[in-house]
Design a protein around this nucleic acid. Structure first.
Lengths: 141, 141
DNA sequence: CTCGGTGCAAAATGTTTGCAAGTAC
DNA sequence: GTACTTGCAAACATTTTGCACCGAG
C-alpha cells in the first residue's frame, strides 16, 4: 500500500506535478477501480470522501495521470464517433500525432484465436486489433 | 458501381429503411471515404452535392447504417473518455450490451507480431486487442 | 515567495430528442 | 394513405478554456 503511494509520489515528482490531497485521493480511488471509469464515474466516488472537490480537478488530474503514464486512455474514447464503410475483416493503425486511421489487412490477424478462458465466460462476436504509433507522413519517412 | 447501389437497396429493403435521395447520396459519399469519417466530416462533403441536407440526417443515417451492418463504428468513439489504471500489458473485452469492459491477460496476445508491411511504414508503439460480445452477466451464463 | 493547482464559470463541441411537414412505398 | 424520413430547434452531455485565489515546495 505504501509502495503505491511511493510510486505515485515519485512519478509526480519526476514530472513536476505537486502532491496535493486531491491528487492523492484521486489516485487511490482510481487504482481501486476495476471498471475503467469515466471522469464522471470516478468523480462521483471521490465526492464521498472529498465532498468539495470539483469535477474539473478530477478531469484534469486524470488527464495529467495519462500524460505521466499513471493511466491509459481507452481506445478512441472521448473522440467524436467515427464510422467505417468497410465492413469486411480488416484492422486499424492509428497515428497518435495526426489522428488518421489507416486500414490494413492481415490473414494472420484475422485468424488469431480467442483465448479459451475468455470463450468460456463470454460470447465473443468481434475482434479488433488496433496498432498505434506515428504514421509515415508524420514521421517524414 | 451498380452492384453497390443494389447492395444498398437490398439491405435497406430487408430492414425496412426507405430509399431516399439523401440516404443514397450519403451512402455513396460514405463508401468513397477512406478516412473513417466523423459525422461532421462526412456532412461537410455531402453538403457540396446536397446543400440543403441537415446535419441530423447525416447523423441519423450513419447510425441507421451501423444498425443494418452497412457501417462499423470505430472502437469506443463517441463515448465519454475512459481511463485505465492498469498500465501493464493486458487486453480488453467489451460487452456490447452493458458497456462494461473486462481486463484479461494473454501471453500469446502480448507477443503477437506487427506485420512487416506495417513496420516498414509506421512506427508502432502500441498494440491493442479488443474483443467484443456479450458478457457472462448479460447472457445469463 | 513562486508557480502550479483548485474551484467556479462559461464556451465550445458533440450527441440526442421532439415535432411538423414532406415523401417513399 | 400510412409510416417513415427530413429539417429545424432545443435539450443534454462532455470536453475545453479563463481566471482569481490558494497552497505545496
Amino acid at each position: 500500500m505504501d509502495s503505491l503511494l511511493e510510486t505515485f509520489r515519485k512519478r509526480c515528482g519526476e514530472n513536476g506535478l505537486k502532491i496535493t490531497p486531491q491528487r492523492t485521493v484521486i489516485y487511490l480511488e482510481f487504482l481501486r477501480s476495476k471498471d475503467h471509469p469515466s471522469v464522471d464515474a470516478l468523480y462521483k466516488r471521490i465526492k464521498k470522501s472529498l465532498p468539495n472537490i470539483s469535477f474539473d480537478t478530477v478531469y484534469r488530474t486524470l488527464q495529467s495521470f495519462s500524460e505521466i503514464g499513471l493511466a491509459n486512455v481507452l481506445e478512441g474514447s472521448g473522440e467524436p464517433r467515427r464510422f467505417d464503410p468497410d465492413t469486411q475483416n480488416h484492422h486499424h493503425f492509428r497515428c497518435i500525432r495526426c489522428g488518421n486511421i489507416f486500414d490494413f489487412h492481415s490473414e494472420f490477424y484475422d485468424n488469431i484465436d480467442i483465448p479459451k478462458e475468455i470463450r468460456a465466460e463470454f460470447d465473443v462476436t468481434k475482434k479488433k486489433i488496433i496498432l498505434e504509433g506515428i504514421c509515415k507522413y508524420c514521421s517524414g519517412k
